[in-house]
């Protein structure tokens, strides 16, 4: 019996496509952000607040992933920016090929920002690189404050945690300090922004984070993860 060392990535085909996307985004100065959370944490609501905040001439587009339905794309189209739904028909995450197909005829040179809303799931999307500059994880206060410890992979790989639904804090037994401490235990470098999409709190900080992240990408001070 011969043991032969291979040392290759299981998902190297996805990684190859993601690397291609990343270099296309970089060549066109597009900041690509991959939004990940459990179902119902508020990814689409955050995108609604984001798109409504932009001027009409903002160069932004959205790819939104779901297992079924065009509902999210329909919610987001009214803001006048390019939005495309990716329906995975059963798959619990987006992969780089779906993003590549989703971009289709869009010209990246027309964009500054591409927001990708992943399928609602805290586990599977963490394994698939989409060529994004940054993953952002949303956690809502109607979930448990121990989510970062239960799902360390995605909290470890995300540059930013958006804590959503903070307007509900008076009504739910959610320890926000513990949630933030748990996130930092998993990822000491994590940035955290507290947001309420319904009360529109924290949206300015989120927009500022996006702008600063793009500046950082353009100045090349940070390498893509």
């Amino acid at each position: 019996m011969n043991r032969i060392g291979l040392e290759r990535k299981v998902l190297n085909e996805n990684d190859r496509l993601a690397a291609g996307l990343r270099s296309r985004f970089a060549a066109s100065n597009v900041l690509c952000v991959n939004l990940i959370s459990s179902p119902g944490a508020g990814k689409t609501s955050l995108l609604e607040r984001t798109l409504e905040s932009f001027d009409r001439d903002a160069r932004v587009a959205v790819l939104t992933g779901d297992i079924q339905t065009e509902n999210d794309a329909n919610r987001l189209r009214c803001y006048g920016f390019p939005v495309r739904q990716i329906t995975t028909r059963g798959t619990c995450h987006l992969d780089a090929r779906m993003v590549e197909r989703g971009l289709e005829d869009w010209r990246l040179t027309d964009l500054d920002l591409l927001l990708i809303e992943n399928v609602g799931n805290l586990v599977c999307p963490s394994s698939y690189d989409l060529g994004e500059a940054a993953k952002v994880v949303l956690l809502s206060v109607t979930e448990g404050e121990d989510k970062p410890l239960k799902y360390p992979s995605i909290f470890f790989k995300s540059e930013l945690m958006v804590l959503n639904k903070i307007d509900l804090l008076p009504y739910v037994p959610f320890d926000i300090a513990a949630a933030e401490e748990n996130a930092r235990r998993v990822n000491p470098n994590a940035e955290i922004i507290r947001v309420s999409c319904t009360q529109k709190n924290g949206i300015a900080e989120w927009l500022a984070w996006l702008a600063a992240r793009r500046d950082r990408m353009l100045s090349g001070r940070t390498s893509a993860v």
Partner: peptide, 28 residues
């Protein structure tokens, strides 16, 4: 989740592995 150095106590240490999903070997 305790990332402090067990030897010298340095609090800020650097990630060095543990996110692999690799095909490591074949036995033929």
């Amino acid at each position: 989740f305790d990332i402090a150095c067990p030897d010298c106590g340095e609090a800020h240490t650097v990630f060095a592995g543990g996110d692999e999903l690799d095909l490591a070997f074949l036995e033929v």
